[in-house]
């Protein structure tokens, strides 16, 4: 897996495309270690000027295979106001590309000691307003990976994810989607009780 493939996991994987509407951009992945690597992405949309970011979805994938672990709709969060997008400049993309390649290397040969530095570098890839928003609303929700590394990856709200898909399928009348969501929900509920 190279850096581009890691980034593309959020938008080009079947789960990424099925769960998030096309108009949303996403952050570079934040890597966390929970017995195996997990990549977390936040999805946001920009207004026409690029100065307002509206975070709306969160998805986590297990690495290196890219199996989806969790999806959340970030309802009721405020917009992040900011100046013109700093991501418009090539140095920002160089930073992101370098970061992605380093992540890809780390996934291939894990060194947990590098995580904190990586976290800081990840933060530096975020558009300023989004970074502020995440520090306020998101970072506190996520445990420090080095202080408490769980032995196994535990999806935080897989039943909730499948329940939302179930409701969507019911609304749309899509029988196939309904059956898939029903099976996923039953499995997630069953596993969450173990």
């Amino acid at each position: 897996m190279n850096g581009n493939e890691l980034y593309a996991l959020a938008s080009e994987s079947p789960a990424g495309q099925a769960c998030v509407p096309m108009n949303f951009q996403h952050t570079a992945p934040r890597l966390i270690w929970r017995g195996s690597w997990i990549a977390e992405f936040w999805y946001y949309r920009e207004d026409d000027s690029g100065g307002v970011y509206v975070p709306r979805y969160y998805m986590a994938f297990r690495l290196p295979g890219g199996a989806p672990l969790e999806m959340r709709a970030l309802e009721g969060k405020q917009e992040c106001l900011g100046p013109a997008p700093e991501l418009a400049a090539q140095p920002c993309w160089d930073r992101i590309n370098d970061y992605l390649e380093d992540c890809a290397r780390l996934i291939e040969s894990p060194k947990k000691g590098a995580l904190r530095a990586l976290e800081e570098r990840w933060s530096a890839t975020l558009p300023g307003p989004l970074r502020t928003w995440m520090e306020t609303y998101q970072l506190q929700e996520v445990e420090e990976p080095e202080s408490k590394p769980p032995e196994t990856a535990v999806p935080r709200d897989l039943p909730g994810y499948w329940k939302a898909r179930l409701e969507e399928a019911l609304r749309s009348g899509d029988k196939d989607a309904y059956e898939r969501a029903k099976a996923g929900y039953a499995k997630a509920i069953s596993e969450s009780r173990h």
Binding site: A8, S11, M22, N23, H26, A88, I96, N97
Partner: peptide
């Protein structure tokens, strides 16, 4: 809009 930039691909527009 900025073809000169080397940024990762993300389809976000139709």
């Amino acid at each position: 809009a900025r073809p000169q930039l080397n940024r990762p691909f993300k389809a976000d527009h139709a």
